[in-house]
Structure formats: structure tokens, C-alpha cells
Nucleic acid binder design. Structure first.
Length: 423
DNA sequence: TCTGGGGTCCTAGGACCC
DNA sequence: TCTGGGGTCCTAGGACCC
């Protein structure tokens, strides 16, 4: 059997840990620039606030119902996530960390009659140690465990842990589940499926394999097999090497000025190279994209990317910034205002697995390596703002976060203070 | 006024080879 | 009248995930 452990309303729950008094209030967490809703507490869901809606569209609801609004505090969520994952790993050796708030647990070594007891214990432990409520769904394949998890969340009778294990029960649950809710079936596929009368997960389970492969590719076929109790999607116990690294942002206002764009692109490029170095990786391909505001009616829709293949893989900010800026200039059109941009690194290889070029300047790359490690160590001691490339300019390229909570668990200055009054 | 960010995988079609 | 057959590799774009 496989268990899927999934945190309930994760980002909202993280905010509640340090503000217990808001536990039963409607809470939403916003994306970068405080743009749209990316997490909601249960009371907020009940108010009809949908995932992904832009804040300005629900302004009235927020005011009327006194909804509590947080900017996203990914540092906090990341740290809480790490704590939860280590609790899971302390009880179960075979775990796949699937996302910031989800993990698959391989229960193949757990005796069947012990499964409910142990998973319930895990749920209680996470709640006690971190304050985060989780739901656990158990079944024979990942896809079915996902569905069991939906059930565990939906029905409070199950007390957060639900096992889906005999065909009759499975079919009963599947026939009540909208096909779009199935893991792997997205918006596009569900439109197609519904057009052909495949409305719920049970219909999908019974759909002809050949038809599915033709219309939904092999991925769809795997999903259908998993619904039919056939394990197809393997566990990934160890972290596999990343294939791409991206840093991108929406800008608060439309940017026309090349010099300002250069600052942003340089900043993105540097972030990307820092991520590379942190993982001991090198990249051989740099891409940059720019995009105009496609929500604005009547304005030119422009999206373009430009890439460069490098002779030798690198993780040097100097190189990566240089190439990113060169790419950016080839797609920049001075008449347009840009709303979003980003840098993507791909063709990623491991540091100690490099194919050097016959003509590469080994001396220079060693020199750059030293510079980079100096910069990294200065930043780790003095803060990430302490040193920067000239092209990034002196001003901070800030994004809007009006309602940011503290980094309670990762920053000494943000640690809780308790005043005890002797009187 | 105002609409996130970071990933993965698959496929069709182009470019190339003999 | 009439123009092969069998491959590989790469990439852009689409669909999906959280």
C-alpha cells in the first residue's frame, strides 16, 4: 500500500501556528506582488473565494467578512515543510517528498493490520510537533492514494485518515469523483473527456486503453491503469537532479526602459546561478523571456524568448548574467511595456562531470570560481543584499508584499518575544 | 489600479544522415 | 504519368503538477 500525506490548507495553516487566535477566521495567502490568492483556510473557502482569483476581484468579500490577508512567506513555509518531512522520515524509511506540502509513503513493509494505527500516529505526531493538520489517503497506487486523500479531507468522519482498499469501495468513490479531480487529468483533458461522456473517475477507469492512449498520450494511459489498481507511477526515493532552473517575476508596473529591465534580468540570472552553485551544478544553456501584459485589452501581446548554448557549462554569475543580458537585448522591443520576465537555465550537468571544451580558458574559469565562492561566502555572512553586480544597480528591485508575516523559525530577529509581567 | 512562480514529461515536426 | 526507405536527434509548444 501507498499513503499520501497532504497538509491541509498548508500556507494558511503555517500562518495560524504563530497566530492561534485567527484559527477559525477566513484567511487567504497571496502570490508575489500580492496579486492573486494561492491558499485559503476552510472558512475562506466557504466564502466562495476561489484558488487563483486576483485580489481586486474579491475586495468586497475581504472587507465584508473581515478576511485576514497574508503575503506569501515562502521562507516560513519551506522551513515548516522540512520539519514535517523529517517527522515522516522518522517513522517511515521509504518516502517520496512530492511537493512542499505532500509526501508519498511506501507502506510495503508495514503489516496490513498496522497501517491505520501507524498512519494515524503519524498524523497526530505532525500536528503535535508542528501544529499543522494533515490528511492521509491510503491505497494501492499513487493515483488511488491521491483520491483516498481527497476523501480523507472531505469527510470529517474519517478523522483525517482514509484507506481505499476493495474494488467495491473504490468504484463507489470513483463514480462520485469528477474526472477533472483525478491526478494527471487537467482542464484540457477533462473538457475532451466530458465531450465523449467520460464524466467521472469511474468512467475513466473503464475507458478503452487504445482510445485513451490516442487522445491523452501514454501519461493518460498510466493514469487509467493506476485507477485499475495497476502500479505504474514509480516512487522517487532519492532526489533526482534538476533539469532546469528558473527565476521569473511579474513586474508591479509595465517596464519600457531597457536599463531597468537589465537590472531585473541580471538579478534573475544571479539568482539562478546561486541556485546552481548551491546544488553543485553547471548549466550549458541560458534562456531569457519577456512578456507584455496579456490581461490588458487592446495592448500588443508579445511573448518572446531567446537562448544561448554555452561552449562550456558554467555556474558563474558573471558568465550567466552576461549571456542573459545578450539574450534579452535580442528580444527587447523599445515600444513595448513588459509585465513579466525571467531567466531559465537548462542543459544542467553535475559539477564533477564536466565536458571541457578543447579551447576553453581553464585559467579564467578557475578564477571565476574563486570569485563566486568569495561572493557566496560574503552573502551568507552579511546578507544577500550585501554585494551585487554593478549592472543590477544600487536600488533594490523590490516586489510588493504588504502583509508579510515574520520568519519565526529562520531569522533570529523574528523569533517570538514573550513579555512576562510579574504583577 | 490590480491577475504567481517553478517545475516535469510528451509529441509532432524539422533537419539531418545513409 | 511516374521521384525511396529507414533511421536519429533536437526543439517548441502543449499539458500537467503543486
Amino acid at each position: 500500500m501507498i499513503a499520501l500525506v497532504d497538509c491541509n490548507n498548508f500556507y494558511a495553516s503555517c500562518e495560524i501556528i504563530f497566530n492561534p487566535s485567527i484559527k477559525n477566521r477566513p484567511i487567504i495567502v497571496l502570490s508575489n506582488n500580492d496579486g492573486c490568492v494561492i491558499a485559503r483556510s476552510n472558512p475562506a473557502k466557504k466564502l466562495g473565494i476561489k484558488m487563483g482569483v486576483p485580489v481586486f476581484k474579491i475586495k468586497e468579500i475581504i472587507e465584508k467578512f473581515d478576511v485576514i490577508v497574508f503575503s506569501s512567506n515562502f521562507t516560513l513555509y519551506g522551513d515548516i515543510s522540512n520539519r514535517i518531512m523529517s517527522i515522516i522520515l522518522s517513522l517511515f524509511p521509504k518516502v517520496e517528498i512530492y511537493s512542499v506540502d505532500e509526501a508519498f509513503v511506501d507502506l510495503s513493509l508495514v503489516p496490513y493490520e498496522k497501517i491505520m494505527e501507524l498512519t494515524t500516529q503519524l498524523k497526530d505526531m505532525i500536528k503535535q510537533y508542528t501544529g499543522i493538520p494533515v490528511s492521509i489517503g491510503i491505497s494501492s497506487t499513487k493515483t488511488l492514494a491521491k483520491i483516498a486523500n481527497i476523501e480523507a479531507k472531505k469527510n470529517s468522519l474519517y478523522n483525517g485518515v482514509f484507506m481505499l482498499n476493495n474494488e467495491q469501495d473504490i468504484d463507489a468513490v470513483l463514480s462520485k469523483l469528477d474526472v477533472e479531480k483525478v491526478w494527471g487529468i487537467g482542464r484540457r483533458s477533462s473538457i475532451l473527456l466530458k465531450y465523449y461522456g467520460v464524466r467521472n473517475a469511474f468512467n475513466l477507469k473503464k475507458t478503452n486503453s487504445k482510445w485513451v492512449k490516442k487522445h491523452l498520450t501514454v501519461k493518460g494511459l498510466l493514469t487509467v491503469k493506476e485507477l485499475n489498481d495497476e502500479k505504474c507511477i514509480d516512487f522517487q526515493y532519492s532526489k533526482i537532479q534538476r533539469k532546469s532552473i528558473r527565476t521569473s517575476r511579474s513586474f508591479l508596473v509595465e517596464i519600457y526602459d531597457l536599463a531597468i529591465l537589465e537590472r531585473y534580468i541580471a538579478m534573475f540570472a544571479e539568482r539562478c546561478s546561486e541556485k546552481l552553485r548551491k546544488d553543485g551544478l553547471l548549466s550549458k544553456k541560458v534562456s531569457v523571456f519577456l512578456q507584455t501584459n496579456y490581461f490588458k485589452k487592446g495592448s500588443t501581446r508579445y511573448f518572446n524568448t531567446s537562448s544561448r548554448n554555452l561552449d562550456v557549462p558554467t555556474s558563474s554569475s558573471i558568465d550567466i548574467i552576461k549571456h542573459s543580458l545578450a539574450c534579452m537585448r535580442t528580444i527587447y522591443r523599445s515600444s513595448l511595456g513588459y509585465k513579466k520576465g525571467g531567466v531559465i537555465l537548462s542543459s544542467i550537468v553535475n559539477e564533477d562531470n564536466v565536458q571541457e571544451n578543447l579551447f576553453s580558458d581553464v585559467k579564467d574559469s578557475l578564477r571565476q570560481k574563486k570569485i563566486m565562492s568569495s561572493i557566496d561566502s560574503i552573502k551568507s555572512r552579511m546578507g544577500s543584499d550585501s554585494i551585487r553586480h554593478a549592472v543590477q544597480g544600487r536600488k533594490n528591485t523590490k516586489i510588493n508584499k504588504k502583509s508579510l508575516s515574520f520568519c519565526y523559525t529562520t531569522n533570529w530577529n523574528d523569533i517570538f518575544t514573550i513579555n512576562i509581567n510579574a504583577n
